[in-house]
Structure formats: C-alpha cells, structure tokens
Design a protein around this nucleic acid. Structure first.
Lengths: 340, 340
DNA sequence: CGTAGAGATTAAAACGTTATAAATTACCGC
DNA sequence: GCGGTAATTTATAACGTTTTAATCTCTACG
C-alpha cells in the first residue's frame, strides 16, 4: 500500500534502474555505459554525455553491493569507538565532525565498539580478514598501539586520533596536549599559584605522556611544586576519582592550582573544593580543557582552554579520504593547538 | 611485507575461503554447502555436520557483498544521529547501548547525520531508494514524524526513540517523561516549593508534550504556581538559554523550584541561581534528569532522576532485530520508567 | 585501393552468494 | 524385481558491476 515516495526521479517504471536500464535506453552496451559513467577517456565524449544524461533522468545510482563484490572496495569507513568511559561530550562532537566530512562522498560510516579492557585488536582483525571497510579511524592511541602496528603491516588505510612512537609514518590527528599543560601551568603561575596538581589519563595512551611532559617541565621551569595524583586515572570510576580528590584536600598543604583534562573531572574537582571549604578564584584556581560550550555557563567560573573535537573529527575524515586516495602518510598529520 | 596476522584460522592457503573452497574440500557441490550452512533441513544431518566442520576449520565467513547482492539484504542498521545540539552525554551512552545489542549478530551499525534544521526526510529516502540498510533507528521523534510516516508506508523496519501519534502501530522505545515531570513536581512540592518553572525542548517533539502535560497537570493538582519559560527551548543556543534564565531571576517573584530536562540546563540553571544570590537547597531547589554518573559528584548537590540511555540504546537495537525477524509492531514498545 | 592502426564499442567472464528446477539416489510396498 | 515416492544432492541461472580481450569502424597513408 506504498503511497508515492515524495520526490522520486522521473520514470521509476516500477523497477530500480541499473546499468542495463541505461543501456537499453541509450542503445549502448552495458560495458560502455559503465565506462562512460566512470569517465573513461576511451569512450567518446558525446557518448559520455548521452549516457550521463540518461542516468540522471532515470535516477540511476550504482548498486553498492554489486560494486563492492566486483571491486572489493566497500565504500565504508569504520570508527572504533570507545564505549566505556568518555570525556563528556566527546563522542557527540567527534562523530558529528566525521559524518560531516564524509557527507556527499559516497562513503558511509560504521561504528564498532572498542573497549580498552577487551582485546583491542579483535575488531581490526575482523575488518581486515572479512574486508568490512576501506579505512579505519580510532581513538585513544597508545605509544606502540597494536592496532596501528597491525594496520601498518597490512598497509591498510587508517587515521589515529593521537600519535604513536612507531618509526614508520602514518596519518594522525592530534591535539597538542603538551602545549595545553604548559599553557595551563603558565596561567596558574600568573595567578600566583605555587602548588599545582593534576590527574592523568591511563599511562598507556600517548597523549598521557604529552600531558605529563608538558606539565612536569613547565612546572619545573617555573619552579613551583607539582604533583600528579596517584592511584587513580581519568579512566577510573568517578566514585574513585571523587574520593581521591577529596582525600587529597586533607593533605597538610593541599594544591592551590588544578589542571583538569576533562570537563567531568573539572566538575568533580570543583566539588572537592566546595566540600573542603575552598573557593576557586580566591584561594585556589582550576583550569580545565573544555570541549563543549556549556562550560561558559556554569559557576563557579573557571578558566578553560578549548579543544575543538568537531574539527578533530572532521580532520580525521578528511585524512582518511586523502589516504585512501593515495596521499603519502607523512603528509597526513594534523596537530591542533590549544585555543581560548 | 605483511607479517603473519596473529591469530589467523588454520589453512589460510593464501586465499580467502569461499563456498567453493569448502565444496572442493568436502566433495559436495557449492549449492549443497550453501544450504548446509544455512541449516536447510532438506540437507542430511550428517552432511550438515561435515560441512560445518570444514567451514570452521577453514575459517570461512560469508562474503557480505555477495550475500547482499543476491538477497538484497544489507545486514546494516542505520542510526539517524542528531549532530546539532545534544543532551550532554546522550550520544555516547545511546550509541554504546546500540552497538552492544548488535554485537555478535552480524549486523553493523552505520551513522548518518540528522540535522533537525535540514530536511529530515532526505536520509530516509536515500536509504530506501538505494537499499542501504535493513532497518532504521532515529531519535527526536515528532508527533506526526514524517520519517515514521514514510517508513510505515514503505513497510520498512524502524524503531523510533519516542512515540508518535499515528494510529498505525510501530516499534518505539521511550522514557516516561510525563512520569518524570510528575515525579519532579511532587518532589519539589514535598520540599515546600510553590513556584516551579521549567524550560521545554522544541514543541515539535512528542516527548515535549509529555513533559508539558505531566508538568502542568501535576502542578495544577498540587495547586502551585508554575511557568514554562518562554521564547527559548532546550535547543536554543546556550547563550540564549543562560540569558533567559538570568532574566527570569529578576522577576518580582522568581521561581523557587526548577525542573531541568538535561544536565547542561541544570548546570546553567545553577549558574543563574548563583548569579542572583540564591542558594539551592536553601531558598530554591533544582531537580534534573540525569543520564551520566558525574552528577553525583558535583556541587551544589541537586536532586536528580535517572534515565538510562545505554539501556535505551540497547532496547532500540533489540527491537529492530526483532522487528526484522518478523515480530509484530504492536509487541515492540518499551516505556522506561524514571528511577533514582 | 588495400590495409595498418587508432578510436570506439562490446561480448563475455568474473566477484561469491542464493534460489529454482532438475537430477540422482535411497527406500518402500507389492 | 519394479514402479513410485521420498530424501538428497546438484547444475545452473541469476543479482549488478567492472574488466579483459576481442570486435568493429573509420581515417590516413603508402
């Protein structure tokens, strides 16, 4: 009982148009039509025009399954998405950026769960073995990330969010986390803070090392006390993080400056300060990385540094497209700088 | 220069195993192998066992492209994902739930952007016309959602997040937002509040009507003053929402109770209260819907009601699978209740 | 005027699967 | 043994593309 689908192209004729439909309509052979549509220069320009016009009129769209079967190309990009802990709002912005970059390219984006606790290699092996995608994107990159290693060996297109320490170049998009912590330390110092503290993500991730290095060296250069909260990482359960922060306030000389890598931690840090009777902006300062606009509208106001995750996702999409088009890996690196 | 992929099945033999590989290995015809693997009862049990064993040993996995070309089934579920405004953390939890429910089913999840501002029908038409998926999931459902209408007409499997007002049944997963607002009003009344206020999402969404109805009727029944903040919705830019909230505090008798549908709004509401010198828990109360665990760790503490978005996503996945398996639409409705 | 060779088109095969229809084998009662 | 039916298996034809290897049609040139 299907009513007319609103804006169907002309001549639906009941059936979905294929190359054969066009061939019959134009009088050319199927092979010619295929060639013409792919812009093969061996086909006469006039023929190409005729075919293109017919295809347009019939509303022809190539069948993905057939093309995939024949060529082995899937027209699919797969994102390995962390489904466990996230930095608040990360997934939404990041994913929006990727889908935006893929819009109109004919590539579709599939999402596969990537639990750091599980075998991170399994989904990649599955994609490789069963030819489920033409390119892979992943996040939470490790210094010697096994996924990157496998994909490099297989010479399979991928873009990592975060750098690795492999010698062989590969495409990546990253945020300058070292610059972030340096900037954060500088701002706290400018506010007169002398005992700064932060919580790091799990040490396996490359960006954790960047955060640490920037933090430690900037703090040393400034000659201020600095601690990294131990026994807990940003991937710990929130209850544990909250407890650790609260316990830390009970030290004889607790920090007077905090650097928060995520918005959730920032909120929890503020909570621990409230509980211990401290007042941000007064006897203590907090500076956080911000990825969503809402931080502008919460109190107490805290100083933030922006990371544009939508732009990051967009860049990841752009790079995988360029990689699949054959661009050299060493030209496909983007390092975003901290902004206000 | 590809090193051995770690855990390859036995006998890679260089080539990817197909039905023909198994046929040659077992001595049966390709057709028999195909039947045997699909569990066709017309194939002798012993043959089925032999074939299954060979397939296992060779590490056979059916080629998706070939199957798709032949059967017309894509083994793909598409999620129409809102890429504009989101309730903080929504996408992450929701998506995790969906991927979790699809795990091990052979279905893969693709994500397509759905901007409410754009033509919401276009992606659906595209999927239908080009046979890009076997099932569709979407969110932010409208009372007479054009996407639902089109899919109902085409008799195409889908699950909406949120109900519609069409008479024809279709699968949906929803949260009892009327119960939420009723509960929220009751709690504020219990705390002695007499002038409650809230901001609603855009009126086009069905759940907005549920929120409104629960709010208005509960407030009337309790006999308290109640207002819905006008000129602004939850989809407005955060700056506008923040401004509206701040302006509202300047009324002669501003609200002493707030109901917040999202975490972001809750934070902004708290900010407006802080700016106006009010103190939650003291002269005013805020109650918010909470979808992430972090709200337990922020200050000032506010009362929250929980919506489990991961479970919601999981239910959406379960229902689309059952729908595609042929279950009746009227049996595929799940209404989640508010919990603590 | 015959033909080499460029230019343009095409027939046919293949990708890996499933479905249709036909073929083979096994079994049963008489 | 024999016709006949049930139980298995199989050859073959698609699905819609791309690609290889022809084939055809000219024009130009000796």
């Amino acid at each position: 009982m299907a009513g007319d689908p609103p804006s169907q192209p002309v001549l639906p004729a009941g059936e979905k148009p294929t190359l054969r439909t066009i061939a019959q309509a134009t009088g050319f052979a199927v092979a010619t039509v295929s060639r013409a549509l792919s812009g093969d220069p061996r086909i006469a320009a006039k023929t190409r025009a005729t075919v293109a016009e017919a295809a347009e009129k019939l509303g022809y769209v190539p069948d993905r399954a057939a093309r995939r079967l024949r060529t082995g190309r899937t027209q699919v990009i797969t994102l390995l998405l962390n489904t466990k802990h996230e930095f608040l709002g990360f997934t939404h912005e990041f994913l929006s950026g990727i889908t935006d970059s893929l819009r109109g390219t004919g590539y579709s984006l599939t999402v596969v769960p990537d639990d750091v606790a599980d075998d991170r290699l399994a989904p990649v092996q599955n994609i490789l073995r069963n030819n489920l995608a033409d390119g892979i994107l992943f996040t939470r990159t490790e210094s010697f990330d096994p996924r990157a290693r496998l994909l490099l060996e297989a010479d399979f297109p991928f873009v990592s969010h975060g750098r690795t320490e492999f010698t062989m170049p590969h495409p990546w998009v990253d945020y300058d986390n070292e610059a972030f912590t340096r900037l954060a330390v500088a701002r706290l110092v400018a506010k007169g803070r002398t005992r700064v503290s932060m919580i790091l993500p799990h040490s396996r991730f490359t960006f954790t090392q960047h955060l640490r290095y920037g933090f430690l060296s900037a703090a040393r250069e400034a000659g201020i006390e600095h601690t990294i909260l131990e026994g807990v990482t940003l991937d710990s359960p929130t209850t544990e993080i909250a407890a650790a922060l609260r316990a830390d306030r009970l030290r004889s000389d607790p920090p007077d400056g905090y650097i928060c890598v995520g918005e959730a931690t920032a909120l929890m840090t503020l909570a621990s300060l409230a509980d211990s009777g401290s007042h941000p902006g007064d006897d203590v300062d907090v500076i956080a990385k911000r990825a969503s606009p809402i931080f502008d509208h919460i109190r107490p106001r805290i100083d933030t540094v922006y990371e544009d995750l939508r732009a990051t996702g967009h860049a990841m999409g752009d790079l995988i497209l360029r990689r699949m088009a054959g661009d050299a890996a060493e030209d496909l690196n983007i390092l975003f700088q901290p902004t206000d």
